[in-house]
């Protein structure tokens, strides 16, 4: 479904007035995600995860290389397939316009894409899916807890029944108990709606819990691609270290 081919991205950092240096964030990233697959992307901070997610979401253009979605370039695809790609961000506080009530937040994608028939029942269904009480509908974001807000974000992102969702460290800012709750929810949703997930994180546990395949991103390159069941076959230094720190091998 998604295909990233040799994507490079570099940013300019202004040194002094006249010189500028370019800094490579991504150096030739190639991978693909199949329909209905759930892929985890793991890397330490600064490895280019967020940049990669912005490229995939079409928010920025790669410096070189191409990104395809079902054979079309990502920009063209997202224009012809409105509402079929969605995202949940790490920072839920800026993910939500603080002027909106919960109801407005969840209704926004639907009304923006003019799919507004049976809006209220749809919103109630969504709230039920993410296990939030309907009493929250008229509340403002600052009256909700972090876990509740992230679930509102989740409800919003699945409201248009997208086929592809990017989770950009969507869980790492939450408590462990809330994390596991949401993980369970995501697994159910995946089975119900046959969605394709790209799961970006910096810790392995959440990913192994949910994903079929894991990509290791290190210093702007994919150093290793493994199926979750074959994690112990890791060859690269980075992946080995990471795995060793989480799961004790050979014991």
């Amino acid at each position: 479904m998604l295909e990233v081919k040799d994507a490079y991205k570099s940013y300019f950092t202004y040194g002094s007035l006249f010189s500028r240096k370019s800094q490579d964030i991504l150096r030739g990233v190639t991978f693909s995600v199949g329909q209905g697959e759930c892929v985890g992307l793991i890397g330490e901070s600064g490895s280019g995860k967020s940049t990669l997610s912005r490229l995939i979401l079409g928010l920025e253009q790669p410096s070189s290389g191409e990104i395809f979605m079902e054979g079309e370039s990502i920009i063209a695809w997202s224009k012809s397939h409105r509402g079929q790609m969605s995202v949940v961000f790490q920072d839920y506080t800026t993910s939500i316009n603080s002027r909106f009530t919960v109801q407005e937040i969840i209704a926004e994608p639907l009304s923006a894409l003019k799919k507004s028939d049976k809006l209220t029942t749809l919103i109630l269904e969504l709230l039920d899916k993410v296990e939030l009480p309907t009493t929250l509908l008229k509340r403002y974001p600052h009256e909700l807890s972090g876990g509740q807000l992230q679930r509102v974000c989740l409800a919003r992102s699945i409201s248009t029944q997208p086929r592809f969702i990017v989770f950009d460290e969507a869980l790492s800012s939450l408590d462990v108990s809330v994390q596991s709750q949401i993980l369970k929810l995501l697994r159910n949703l995946k089975n119900d709606l046959n969605m394709t997930y790209l799961f970006i994180a910096h810790d392995l546990q959440t990913i192994t819990n949910l994903c079929d395949k894991v990509l290791f991103l290190y210093q702007g390159r994919i150093v290793e691609q493994l199926r979750t069941s074959e994690l112990f076959k890791a060859k690269s230094e980075y992946a080995k270290n990471l795995l060793a720190s989480v799961i004790p091998f050979g014991g």
Partner: peptide, 26 residues
């Protein structure tokens, strides 16, 4: 730079929606 505007963009909302709903009030 706020995520809610990024979200609307990813979803494919048009410029007038983003400007009217998110940018102008703020």
């Amino acid at each position: 730079d706020k995520n809610y505007i990024r979200f609307s963009k990813v979803l494919g909302c048009n410029a007038s929606h983003i400007i009217r709903k998110h940018l102008l009030p703020n």
